[in-house]
Nucleic acid binder design. Structure first.
Lengths: 246, 246
DNA sequence: GTCCGTATGAATGTATACATCTCGTATACG
DNA sequence: CGTATACGAGATGTATACATTCATACGGAC
């Protein structure tokens, strides 16, 4: 039983506030530009103002909220360009992670773990009829997380963790939408080919190639964004994309 | 009279706490690994615990502090590799900023401002006898800030602002140390040549070249780091470098 | 009718009291 | 003498009361 330790950063209240407010924002219940009142939120979430304040401050750091010069916070409005930039930024950072891994080398044990993941994703993607998207999302997330670790740079890993606080910048952001698109399989097959190429480049210590590949890999998500934007119905399927305003 | 508006994020107390704690940490008064007690800090800075808490949370986001699993914060210890990574990360992000500026184009007015800055730095660096380091630091800072803006990406600009919260990652971090080194002039002349090349590449819409140049520009700082590390006397001249532990 | 000053209300910023948990220490038992 | 347990000091987490500031609306003067 996961004994609720203080490590949860407010084992209860502050974490509740964080998750609660995030939910309110990304579900669109509050809407871009709208002001977040501490007292109203504290009533709505049945918490005191203190954990609410802590959560608001953190969400501002995450880029979800903006400070009002006179005090307080509003929901940040994202443009399509903002989302595209966030995705490309992830690509740049993951490219750097891949390059670091290639240049600095990685322990054989970890490469083995990488290959194990690749094999699992292979079988998932190769599924003839119905793909297990849930499994794909899990393994794909693990792949990227491991890649970040392989960089060997904590500073870089932190920064990547930060950028991926924005849900639409996540590697898995568009997978659920892809599940409803006709060319799904092909798209994921391409993604997996890129996964393999990235690992290959890392093993061969080809830093430049590893970086370029990881960037291109993120561009897949970038392309999907353009497709999804066209289809308002699909947009609701991508987490956090409801925040896009103009 | 700068009317203290709430926009200062705690017009007084919270800002005081932030600056105060940062000072305590970067001056080495607290030291890596040491725990930061809220009550002790509140006494030391003559503030209540509330603004202290807010400042601690922010400094943790900035990467200066680390959370203890059981609650509370300690001063983060930086290795030489951490500092090098932070500098290289800045280079990667500034490279992306330069590439964006080249690819997306910048308004002529802003390019003019860029050239004006370049001209000013030229005259400063060309000074025959004593260089005005203070002026150089100011203009150099403005150059980099403007470069970040020229990217046209707010997301990227935010991320750059974050990375540069670590003082040793700042473009100006090693200038004061350079002032005490024999090869100062040459080093800054090279830096200025790179400045010009970056702007040139942006004007010619050569994204790849702009990115590579900005990265190489950051490597100058990286190289200076190695030199400074050797000389414990110089280390104290570089802000925040006292945090380096092992 | 418009503009400016004032006043009122609500929001955030701050301080502090209280609750809860962690960790060190001392003591008792095996 | 070592270990386990219980206790206590001190830390953070939380709630709330108080101070201060900002925005809005109202009223009066020009």
């Amino acid at each position: 039983m996961a004994a609720p330790t203080r490590a949860d950063r407010g084992g209860s209240q502050t974490l509740k506030a964080l998750l609660g407010i995030r939910e309110l924002v990304f579900s669109g219940a509050i809407g871009p530009g709208e002001r977040l009142s501490e007292v109203i939120l504290s009533h709505r979430l049945s918490l005191s103002r203190t954990p609410i304040r802590a959560a608001l401050a953190q969400l501002e750091q995450e880029g979800v909220l903006e400070t009002i010069p006179s005090g307080g916070y509003t929901v940040r409005g994202f443009t399509q360009a903002d989302v595209a930039d966030a995705i490309e930024l992830r690509g740049v950072l993951e490219g750097t992670a891949a390059r670091f891994a290639a240049e600095r080398g990685v322990a054989p044990v970890r490469l083995q773990a990488m290959h194990a993941l690749l094999a699992e994703i292979d079988t998932i993607v190769a599924e003839p009829q119905e793909m297990d998207f849930s499994a794909y999302i899990d393994r794909n997330g693990e792949f990227h997380e491991l890649l970040h670790t392989l960089s060997g740079s904590d500073t870089l890993r932190r920064e990547l963790a930060r950028v991926m606080k924005l849900p639409f910048a996540l590697p898995n952001a568009f997978v659920t939408a892809q599940a409803q698109m006709p060319e799904i399989r092909a798209s994921l097959v391409v993604a997996q080919a890129q996964h393999r190429a990235i690992v290959d480049a890392i093993e061969l210590r080809e830093g430049g190639r590893a970086e370029a590949l990881a960037r291109e890999h993120a561009r897949l998500a970038r392309n999907n964004l353009d497709v999804v934007i066209e289809d308002r119905n699909l947009m609701t399927k991508v987490p956090g994309l409801a925040l896009i305003s103009t």
